[in-house]
């Protein structure tokens, strides 16, 4: 990821200063770089042992105990129909997000930086992405090297 460059870029943009600036928590899921509005993210926690839910959708990885609250953990790789995480890979991280239906945890491969994006970087959602991940992607921003897909958390949490 292009961390330094991104920060430079975003601070420049901030001076341009339209009201449309967003801060996004970014993370890697398979080959995708995804982002969620920083205001929606409650916290990031390490992988912890989960309670499997038999008969639930395959997207549901299990249940975790977050300080007395029981959260459903959704594997974003499966949600995006990506190949499963290699067994040798590091355990995924939990991105705990507030949604309308309650708090959920999204399992991601790596957590990236918080980036600030504005209208200048906004891209029309490319047709290929629209076709494959139709409702899961709310917006697309162009970063230095990557395309940042903004996750529609409500859709992603609906299985």
């Amino acid at each position: 990821m292009s961390t330094d460059a991104t920060h430079l870029l975003t601070s420049d943009l901030a001076t341009v200063g339209t009201g449309e600036q967003h801060q996004l928590v970014t993370f890697q899921v398979g080959s995708l770089l995804l982002g969620i509005d920083v205001m929606k993210v409650q916290e990031l926690i390490r992988y912890q042992e989960m309670t499997k839910v038999p008969l639930a959708s395959a997207v549901v990885e299990g249940l975790i105990n977050l300080r007395g609250e029981i959260l459903t953990a959704i594997d974003l790789r499966r949600r995006f129909s990506l190949p499963p995480r290699p067994a040798s890979a590091e355990p995924p991280m939990n991105v705990v997000v507030r949604t309308e239906g309650g708090i959920v945890s999204f399992l991601v491969d790596h957590i990236g930086d918080v980036v600030e994006v504005g209208p200048a970087q906004h891209e029309r959602t490319p047709a290929t992405i629209r076709q494959r991940y139709d409702d899961l992607v709310a917006a697309v921003y162009k970063l230095e090297r990557d395309l940042l897909l903004v996750l529609d958390v409500e859709q992603a949490a609906t299985v």
Binding site: L55, A56, V59, L63, I70, T72, G101, V104, T158
Partner: peptide, 15 residues
């Protein structure tokens, strides 16, 4: 209660 993702599973009453 279980999250809305698991509401359809009638064999579980909660967690």
């Amino acid at each position: 209660p279980l999250g809305k993702q698991l509401k359809d599973l009638s064999i579980f009453a909660g967690a």
